[in-house]
């Protein structure tokens, strides 16, 4: 072709430049571990670390779902209330004695929790997509509904698993371990591996990222925006249900305040992990890292004497702001 004007390629800024944003949370985690080591000799013990990671499992698993919702450009504020609601219904079912055999009752209860979680997520998804209500407002509404229903179910008090056989059977799911690794930790990594596979390797995952990156481009490419978004909320509901399965055996009871502010912790974990709050970039392992960071900060504050543990909320709030500032400065390069 004669006379073609070639435009000199601009200084090649490749996708590699974005890697810094992906690595940052892991660097932060490493620094925290070092800090913890110097703060208290008991911090760097296997027992303490396993305990911390186990405790982070609820937020970590919920945040995996939140990573999907946020990556597709949505937001779900209802997860904390949803957890309380699903857990309450599950316990009420276990207490109802519908099924006499404890093992069978427990299995059915767990299946029920999964189904209710998915249904709650579906409700959120349909309200935001078909109902065309801003996710912030829609899930603020369902948060109130799930929380209110929980309070009503418990009549303001607690709902406790009454059947000792079931509880005895169920306890190990939270407190037991497999090959020395606590089961909740196994659950974290297995769900994260599945989430990462789906987000990074499958067609659906690619669609989630595309929808969050630019809704119009996705629509003009023949992707059903509503379907993709709705499914992210269902995934979020399923993740909440998995968290419920870990949460119920821990104490065997729920109350009106179960899961309060967990939605904020989950969002913090997602953002600290490097996922863009405006959508389009999702980092599954970053989210897990973010959840660990939140729990470890709390743990260090408990173990050390510099800062009152009553300030945990303030520190977590500061973390999310710092994370956003770091993210921004890394994007600008």
């Amino acid at each position: 072709m004669a006379n073609v004007v070639t435009e000199p390629a601009k200084a090649p800024k490749t996708s590699k430049d974005w890697d810094m944003a992906a690595i940052a949370p892991f660097i932060a985690l490493a620094l925290l571990l070092v800090l913890g080591y110097f703060a208290n000799p008991n911090f760097m013990t296997t027992a303490n670390l396993l305990n911390v990671v186990t405790r982070s499992s609820f937020i970590a698993v919920i945040a995996l779902g939140a990573t999907y919702v946020i990556t597709s450009g949505g937001l779900d504020l209802s997860v904390g209330a949803m957890l309380a609601f699903v857990a309450s219904l599950m316990i009420l079912f276990l207490n109802s004695g519908t099924i006499a055999d404890p093992a069978l009752a427990l299995t059915a209860g767990m299946a029920l929790a999964i189904a209710i979680g998915a249904a709650c997520g579906l409700a959120n998804g349909l309200i935001t997509t078909i109902g065309r209500i801003e996710p912030f407002i829609a899930t603020l509404g369902t948060m109130g509904i799930y929380r209110g229903l929980t309070t009503w179910l418990s009549q303001g008090g607690a709902i406790t698993v009454r059947d000792r056989d079931i509880l005895a059977l169920y306890r190990p799911v939270y407190s037991g371990s497999f090959a020395g690794v606590p089961i909740p930790i196994i659950v974290i990594f297995v769900t994260a591996a599945i989430a990462a596979f789906v987000l990074y390797r499958t067609r659906y995952g690619r669609h989630v990222t595309a929808v969050g990156s630019n809704e119009d481009v996705a629509r003009y490419s023949g992707i059903s925006i509503n379907r993709v978004r709705t499914v992210t909320y269902v995934i979020q509901g399923l993740c909440v249900a998995v968290a419920v399965l870990l949460y119920v055996p821990r104490l065997g009871s729920t109350s009106a305040t179960t899961g309060s502010f967990w939605e904020l912790q989950a969002i913090t974990a997602v953002v600290v992990g490097g996922t863009a709050l405006r959508g389009g970039v999702g980092r599954i392992w970053g989210t897990i890292c973010g959840a660990f960071i939140l729990e470890i900060v709390g743990n260090i504050m408990l173990l050390s004497n510099f800062v009152s543990e009553y300030l945990i909320g303030a520190i977590q709030g500061a973390i999310i702001i710092i994370a956003m500032l770091v993210q921004r400065s890394l994007m600008r390069r």
């Binding site: 595309a210 630019n214 481009v217």
Partner: peptide, 19 residues
Amino acid sequence: GKGLLLTKDLIVNLTLASL
């Protein structure tokens, strides 16, 4: 605005409509 995902790489853009 509606054709390409500017912040994604070439492959993601190329195959988006025909994944």
